[in-house]
């Protein structure tokens, strides 16, 4: 039996137990297969004849799981209940016996997720990019409505998000193979200009960006990849979304190459959020530094043999991009 047949049979067994009826699984396709998780598209036909178009998110190796599936699944539910376009959860299991690892199943949402194809769709439909950026603002405000008492008790909490972000990035910088004066200058600025800790913690998606959005001709359809969600400072999401890395050469459009910050703010405020510019700027610079340190970490993982890969090695030669972005973002502070 092939691996695809194993997955098909495993999904059918799991859903049969879940729904307590016979289930037929067909039309299997792999949407993405990373080292950490695999997304399998399929169709399930229930005993009564009803057909459902679904996606299974599978962690092939439970040992590298970032967050228990039940926690991620409950985050999807909480975000959706607050109005955010999180995929609709169908079932979740920590059991590895069905498809070789923990999994959850959601309703499938059609559309583009690959950034370059997203941007092509945007280009083909005047006004769509600005609409999507506004919808991103709405979705973020909806996510940020979710407070600490509405999430799973095991969802990671950052009681002092500013202090924790600084400590985290300092630790990353201390581990660099080759220290970067630009990163040190950026960390100096971040420490000197640290905003007060936020007065309330909210759900934070943690990786809200072009690449984790499903876009159609009608706009934003869903937000994916909730595995690094946590309770923290809501402006972290806005800063992360707007770093240059996610614009894919559409540099002038700050929100993922899709639209402007004014679009984002309009949606955020219309949906009841409070957009804090100073805090946003701090998190954008923090995000850029964090990603820069992350790229250096990928190169180090290649060099120390953890993951030998030409792609990881090449990340080391992208550090200069993040350094440039940081120096430009910091330039108002150091102008003569």
């Amino acid at each position: 039996m092939s691996a695809a047949d194993d997955t098909r049979a495993g999904l059918a067994r799991f859903l049969a137990v879940h729904w307590d009826e016979d289930v037929d699984v067909s039309e299997l396709g792999v949407a993405s297969a990373g080292a950490r998780r695999r997304n399998v598209l399929f169709e399930a036909t229930r005993a009564g004849g009803e057909s459902l178009r679904l996606v299974a998110t599978i962690i092939p190796n439970a040992a590298i799981q970032v967050m228990p599936m039940e926690v991620e699944a409950s985050t999807l539910r909480a975000a959706r209940a607050a109005g955010a376009p999180a995929p609709e959860l169908v079932a979740v299991s920590e059991e590895v016996e069905y498809v070789g690892g923990p999994l959850f199943i959601t309703r499938r949402v059609d559309g583009e997720t690959i950034p370059r194809r997203v941007l092509r769709t945007i280009d083909a439909h005047p006004g769509l990019g600005s609409r999507v950026a506004t919808q991103c603002g709405e979705a973020l405000a909806e996510i940020h409505r979710v407070a600490g008492d509405a999430v799973h008790p095991d969802l990671p909490r950052q009681p002092e998000p500013i202090r924790m972000a600084l400590a985290g990035v300092r630790q990353l910088l201390d581990g660099l193979l080759q220290p970067s004066p630009t990163f040190s200058l950026a960390l100096r600025w971040l420490e000197k200009h640290r905003p007060p800790e936020p007065d309330r913690l909210t759900l934070v998606h943690g990786d809200f960006r072009n690449g984790n959005l499903i876009i159609g001709e009608d706009g934003l359809r869903a937000v994916l990849d909730w595995e690094v969600a946590h309770l923290g400072d809501p402006m972290e999401d806005a800063g992360w979304l707007c770093q240059r890395m996610w614009r894919f050469r559409n540099d002038a459009l700050e929100v993922g190459g899709l639209g402007s910050r004014a679009d984002l703010r309009k949606g955020y405020e219309a949906a009841g959020g409070t957009f804090d510019d100073a805090r946003f700027r701090w998190w954008k610079i923090m995000s850029t530094l964090k990603w820069g340190a992350g790229l250096a970490g990928q190169a180090a993982a290649h060099l120390d043999g953890t993951v030998r890969s030409v792609v990881m090695a090449a990340s080391g030669r992208r550090i200069a991009e993040m350094e440039y972005d940081l120096l430009m973002l910091l330039s108002p502070a150091y102008r003569d």
Partner: peptide, 8 residues
């Protein structure tokens, strides 16, 4: 800042 920008 000025020197690092030129280096980068």
């Amino acid at each position: 800042h000025a020197a690092l920008l030129e280096i980068v």
